[in-house]
Design a protein around this nucleic acid. Structure first.
Length: 489
DNA sequence: GCGAAGTTGCA
DNA sequence: GCAACTTCG
């Protein structure tokens, strides 16, 4: 390029709300073009975020606006159809180039592909960059060239690839970004992303600090407080061995590569054992794997990966679904989890499995109902991870827990919340019970319950189903599924 | 085509 | 032990 006048470009932010380790932003900055940074709230965008994520988005956009202001720039907010808004912005700024971070879900790929084709036809150059995952989903395959269906070999191959090629160093915040002349922007309030009447997100504010700075603080805090002993401690919801980085990853307030680099540092400094660090890396691997599965199986989000499950006799029971959603199942570990979700926008990983197993197996309610509730209430709600995890629990996924594996909500509570710290926090109405009765309060002797002020069916619900009965019913329903040979007979 | 392996459990 | 089945090398 040898023009005397620099051209103009647009950096379109989406699920990549950060300035560091942002390949698209770095490329845009290095091009020397005058940059307009924009975020479009498109009411018709695929997979609109749920309520919790809208709250996050509001605060993350606020943080990004402040970061850009520090650099002398601005974040332009617009509402409307992405194609129309981009056309407007191109007219207003004279931009000839658009940079964005690649997206990987089926409808987003379709949407971005179409958009790119139209823009290109209109004479605009579109550059899409990676950054959301450790590896692009086409990087590893089986020896025969097909996509992996099982995590372990997928991760072995990915791990080898990372060892051999490396991820590259995380990029710094680009220096010397030249910002284009300002154009009009909506106000963040116009986006109307925050809940009102009631403001159910009140409990979020003390816990979460959306934005890149908040992500770095969370990462540092985890490395200080929770990283050592992660591999074992991660299973105990009352302990601080969870990173809570997932909402930051989801919004792109931090990249997996930045976390990977921090793990390497922590391991070198002895802040984290090799085992702990490797375990955490594998969790990033699960995140990649979910995206990989969805990328290679377009209907994975909505359809059972194992065809025989597509005829499973799910129960339709709205009352039961509501009791589950509200944390009124009568099983304290399940209720604690569902209330943690509602109050904080997050749920501990171990407890996610327990509550999901309860919905799908004890209640035999369609996993898609659970998926939808999680989508709406989780700050880290992610299309691929959500579907992959629900399918895993339901037993219908690629590499799923066998269906006959039914989590026992009492045993799980005793094992992973032995002191009842987690249950007491979220189910305070039974907090005065001795530890040994917290997993199944209805089993406590009458006088013990009376002393703790617990009256089953009044101060705390009776278990909505009997565990042993529900377990048998679930196994029976499973038996009714066709086995592979059946259709040959 | 063979053998080993397959996140997280339960009774 | 559980039920068998698929994946992957």
């Amino acid at each position: 390029m040898s023009t005397s006048e620099p051209s103009n470009a647009i950096l379109l932010f989406r699920d990549d709300l950060r300035l560091s380790d942002h390949p698209a932003l770095t490329a845009a900055a290095q091009s020397g073009q005058c940059l307009t940074c924009a975020f479009i709230l498109d009411p018709n965008a695929p997979y609109p975020p749920g309520g919790a994520r809208r709250w996050w988005l509001h605060h993350a956009l606020n943080a990004l606006t402040a970061q850009l202001a520090d650099l002398g720039g601005k974040l332009v907010l617009r509402t409307g159809a992405t194609a129309d808004v981009l056309a407007d912005l191109r007219k207003e700024t004279g931009a000839t180039h658009i940079y964005w971070s690649r997206r990987y879900t089926p409808d987003e790929i379709a949407s971005d592909t179409a958009l790119k084709a139209d823009l290109t036809a209109a004479g605009c150059t579109v550059q899409s960059h990676p950054g959301r995952y450790l590896l692009e989903p086409w990087r590893v395959t089986t020896k025969s060239g097909t996509p992996f269906k099982v995590f372990s070999p997928f991760w072995r191959a990915s791990r080898d690839e990372i060892r051999a090629v490396g991820l590259g160093d995380p990029l710094p915040v680009p220096k010397n970004i030249t910002f284009a002349d300002e154009v009009a922007t909506a106000s963040l309030e116009d986006f109307d992303l925050l809940p009102t009447a009631p403001n159910w997100a009140k409990g979020f504010e003390a816990l979460w600090h959306p934005g890149e700075e908040g992500a770095m603080a969370r990462l540092d805090a985890f490395l200080e407080e929770g990283a050592q002993g992660y591999a074992k401690g991660r299973d105990f919801p009352a302990e601080p061995h969870t990173s809570r980085l997932s909402p930051y990853l989801q919004s792109g307030n931090i990249s997996p590569r930045q976390i990977w680099a921090a793990l390497d540092r922590a391991e070198h400094l002895g802040q984290m054992s090799g085992r702990d660090a490797e375990k955490f890396r594998a969790e990033l691997g699960w995140r990649d794997f979910a995206a990989y599965l969805l990328f290679h199986n377009r209907d994975f989000e909505d359809t059972e990966f194992q065809p025989k499950f597509r005829s499973f006799p799910w129960r339709h029971d709205t009352d039961a679904l509501i009791a589950w959603q509200r944390g009124q199942s009568g099983y304290p570990i399940v209720d604690a989890g569902m209330r943690e979700l509602w109050q904080t926008g997050y749920m501990h990983n171990r407890v996610r499995m327990v509550v999901a197993s309860f919905l799908v197996k004890h209640l035999r309610i369609d996993w898609r109902a659970g998926r939808d509730w999680f989508w709406d209430t989780l700050l880290d709600g992610d299309l691929a991870s959500n579907a992959a995890s629900w399918q895993w629990v339901a037993g219908c996924g690629a590499d799923a827990a066998p269906y006959f594996r039914v989590f026992n909500p009492m045993t799980q509570a005793e094992k992973f919340d032995p002191d009842g710290g987690y249950i007491r926090q979220y189910v305070p109405e039974i907090a005065a019970l001795p530890d040994r009765y917290l997993a199944a309060p209805w089993k406590a002797p009458e006088d013990v319950r009376a002393k703790a002020g617990v009256e089953i069916g009044r101060t705390y619900p009776a278990p909505m189903v009997d565990h042993a009965t529900a377990r048998r019913a679930a196994l029976e329903a499973f038996e009714s599924l066709p086995s592979p040979g059946d259709d040959l007979v």
